[in-house]
Write a protein that binds this DNA or RNA. Structure first.
Lengths: 131, 131
DNA sequence: CGGGTAGTTTACGTTTACGTAAAGAGAAAG
DNA sequence: CTTTCTCTTTACGTAAACGTAAACTACCCG
């Protein structure tokens, strides 16, 4: 199992530019080791990159993702920190559930639209219905 | 049932600034009627605004939402148009389903994180577990 | 008639998330 | 040694989605 990665390996695997990856580092989301000047990414870095990209797909700003990372890394012994973390989790959960409802709604509408278009095509006698 | 709306009514109902609503018009997403210089929004405009905002929550760019509107409005008799529409629907569906998977994953992780934090708090004897 | 309250246009400013170009370092290949 | 990659830093540029300020209009209130 591979244990370190170069920037181009990661950029190819996740289909992002090296520029983007360096930018995430600039913003404090990644902190790869160095071999001389070259960046060397660990498996932890790779996981983080995956999380960053998933966050992006869900509309998280980089600063939000960074904040979540910091919470994860922060002192888990501090009761105050944990309460704060629970609040953040709660907020995120509500946003995501709203988003899920939005998705269900749009998928439903796409169904309706698709059916109506297919019906229209069928009526035209072109009948490519089972596609 | 109300049949027309002012810009401030809509901005309050959907919690967006009038500036944003005018911007959507600039970008060709809304085309309210006018009474003199004043904008008068119909129920159709209101529905569109709702769709715009839902699109935003899902990470659609305004230009993408506009493109979908144009498809909806376009000549439904044109077979080519309909095929194109079906393709767009398919693309959108795949993106949305990816997004749904992302959401499920994050919600699952939030569950794990929340449980572990609650457990940590319980162990500390502070036991606010049933919150 | 002097204010408020909404609304309008015009235009420049701002943030986020990179793109892109320039210039150089280091290692391998011919 | 020169070429060729890959990677690096530095820095300016850019698109999207508004924010914000200025200056104006129109109407209602007392």
């Amino acid at each position: 199992m591979q244990t370190t990665y170069t920037i181009t390996e990661l950029s190819r695997e996740f289909d992002v530019t090296p520029r983007a990856i360096r930018f995430y580092e600039d913003q404090g989301l990644l902190s790869p080791a160095r071999e001389g000047r070259r960046r060397v990414y660990s498996r932890r870095d790779r996981v983080r990159l995956k999380l960053i990209l998933r966050g992006k797909r869900l509309g998280f700003q980089l600063s939000e993702t960074r904040a979540l990372f910091e919470l994860y890394d922060s002192d888990h012994g501090e009761t105050g920190q944990m309460q704060y973390f629970l609040e953040k989790i709660h907020e995120r959960r509500e946003l995501l559930e709203q988003q899920r409802r939005d998705i269900e709604a749009v998928l439903g509408e796409l169904d309706v639209a698709e059916r109506s278009v297919r019906e229209a095509l069928r009526v035209k006698g072109l009948a490519p219905t089972p596609a």
